[in-house]
Simulated assay, not measured.
Amino acid sequence: MASLLLSTSPPHLHHLSSPRHRVPTLPSLPPLKPFKRTNFSPVLSHPKLATHVVYHRTIAKSSSIGSRETEDPIPDESPLGEDSAAFQLSAQKLSSWVYFTVILGSVLLALNVLWIDPSTGFGTAFVDSISNISGSPEVTMLLLMAIFATVHSGLASLRDPSEKLIGKRAFRVLFAGISLPLAMSTIVYFINHRYDGTQLWQIQTVPGVHELVWLSSFVSFFFLYPSTFNLLEVAAVDEPKMHLWETGIMRITRHPQMVGQVIWCLAHTLWIGNTVAISASVGLILHHLFGVWNGDRRLAIRYGKSFEVIKKRTSVIPFAAILDGRQELPKDYYKEFLRLPYVAITILTLGAYFAHPLMQSSSYNLHW
């Protein structure tokens, strides 16, 4: 290296190359060994940082749109997504939850006045108009599902341009304000008409069936999409974001909400055993299968190469990426579920089971 520097020295230093001023030759250095990239992720392995992951390589901010390319390629080991179901009580603001409570109460009041109450709302007229199309509960169930799915997925697909036009919080209010009444009408109609139609099998008295259906329904709620845990974002108290999740349930399946919905549908169809239950399950499953394609498409547009890397090491089919070696579970993987959001899900799921009689009586009172 020293000889190279001398050979390319400026003209005013050329006299140093004469015998009188010759610089002693430095010993040659051994060749440098190539740097070995190691699979090291201190953030995920550190227990104190496990619930608040900060990733060391960011491709793009979540607010920008478009394909992301960098000169430095991303190795498959680099963590790129967010830590799902992370919750720190110390980071919560009391004022934010006060706003959430006020917003939730306001939304429920508006929903009751504008949609549920037959004397003031449009819900009864909407359901009656759909049910009068054919008079068949199976067809009505499918139509209600199709309307909800079209509006819900359509608005989700328009999220990026809509947020640019009216803002993130305003779009979330619009999205929830339209989706929530349609979802409620579909659920109430299913509860009121679940035993209509043609009975295909009846196995409710078979030993073990009730336990199987109950356990399957319970497990299905643990496949909730991690974004549903962000209640402050759902209510637009915090600025809503499109998250790129990578840990927790995402290691098992990249589309947990779809998997949970399929489990729930199969369990309830087995229990009810008629054509109305089948039509509801078919509509729900088709909607969520479309959501698999549409969700991947939207994440690819938003996160580009970051999403493509995560897509390679996750799978839609549960456990497929783990079994073929693309996803390696940490030794303390169970800790990614020992978090407050999953405790809340457990309590709410048990509460919903014991509240079934109340839910049914409330639905019957609407006569939808």
Rank of each mutant, 00 (worst) to 15 (best):
I116H: 02
P118A: 10
P118H: 12
S119T: 06
T120C: 14
G123I: 07
F126P: 02
S129C: 06
I130R: 08
S131Y: 01
G135V: 02
E138G: 12
V139R: 10
M141W: 06
L142V: 08
L143S: 08
M145C: 14
A146V: 05
T150A: 15
H152M: 03
S153N: 14
L155W: 05
A156K: 12
S157G: 15
L158G: 11
D160E: 13
D160H: 15
P161K: 00
S162H: 07
E163C: 06
E163H: 00
K164G: 11
I166Y: 04
K168G: 00
F171Y: 14
F171T: 05
R172Y: 06
F175Y: 14
L180Y: 15
P181A: 00
M184G: 11
I187T: 06
V188K: 10
Y189W: 10
F190A: 13
F190C: 10
I191L: 15
R194A: 12
R194C: 06
G197A: 12
Q199Y: 05
I203D: 09
Q204C: 09
T205V: 01
V206M: 13
V206A: 11
P207D: 07
P207H: 09
G208F: 13
V209I: 15
L212H: 09
V213K: 10
S216G: 02
S217T: 11
S217H: 07
S217L: 13
S217V: 12
V219R: 08
S220L: 06
S220N: 00
F221Y: 11
Y225L: 00
T228P: 01
F229T: 09
N230Y: 02
L231P: 05
L231K: 02
V234M: 10
A235G: 07
